[in-house]
């Protein structure tokens, strides 16, 4: 353990040592005792944790459960016969519909003359910009903070502006099911949106 790593972990996990999975509490206590800087960082984080813990919230109202269970009964009318799970999956239907449409278009629409697509300046610029943004994420060695830093450098200093800036670049138009969060997909390409 060195002070740099200690500081980074303290910034991520705070002063609750149970969250520091890679080092024992005893080792951490010994390190804090050996360094004045570590002690000061620990005290600062402990204070913040304590203040955060003062924000307690009430439980959900007991009527909520009754309301939800009532709605589920109404929504399904009680005993529902479900189709096999294969057909319940939207992507299956979407794929079947897309295949049918592709077959139809193949036979129904005459081929268009092939002309090279002229590059659109704004799109080209956006591509360059996105590749610059994606680079630090693609490189495993880079800290994700550099990704924020890039957005920060291109916006004002307001935190929400930084996120909004990334949203503007990375969010597509809203669909009928609500906006698909490319920002999330961008950070974790394999995750499925519910």
């Amino acid at each position: 353990m060195d002070i740099k790593r200690f500081k980074k972990n303290m910034e991520i996990y705070g002063a609750d040592f149970s969250r520091w999975s890679d080092i024992s509490s005893a080792d951490l206590e010994a390190f804090i005792a050996s360094s004045q800087e570590a002690q000061s960082l620990y005290e600062k984080a402990k204070k913040l944790d304590k203040v955060l813990d003062s924000y307690n919230i009430e439980d959900a109202s007991p009527e909520l459960l009754a309301s939800v269970t009532e709605k589920t009964s109404k929504k399904t009318g009680g005993n529902v016969i479900y189709p096999p799970s294969f057909f319940r999956r939207k992507p299956v239907w979407a794929a079947m519909a897309a295949s049918a449409a592709a077959v139809f278009l193949f036979f129904a629409v005459p081929p268009l003359p092939i002309t090279p697509m002229a590059p659109v300046d704004t799109e080209a610029e956006l591509d360059i910009f996105l590749s610059e943004i994606l680079l630090p994420v693609e490189e495993e060695s880079e800290d994700v903070l550099s990704f924020f830093k890039f957005a920060e450098d291109n916006t004002a200093t307001e935190e929400q502006e930084v996120e909004d800036f990334l949203d503007t670049l990375l969010l597509p138009e809203e669909t009928s099911e609500g906006p698909v969060d490319i920002w999330d997909a961008f950070l974790a390409p394999d995750t499925e949106r519910l």
């Binding site: 910034e11 996990y13 913040l48 800290d143 994700v144 924020f148 999330d184 950070l187």
Partner: peptide, 22 residues
């Protein structure tokens, strides 16, 4: 997993959040 983000992204978000709150 809950946020559909990478662990590194969550770490970055936590650092930013704690700094801003502080």
């Amino acid at each position: 997993t809950a946020m559909g983000a990478t662990v590194k992204a969550v770490e970055g978000l936590l650092v930013r959040a704690r700094k801003t709150l502080q």
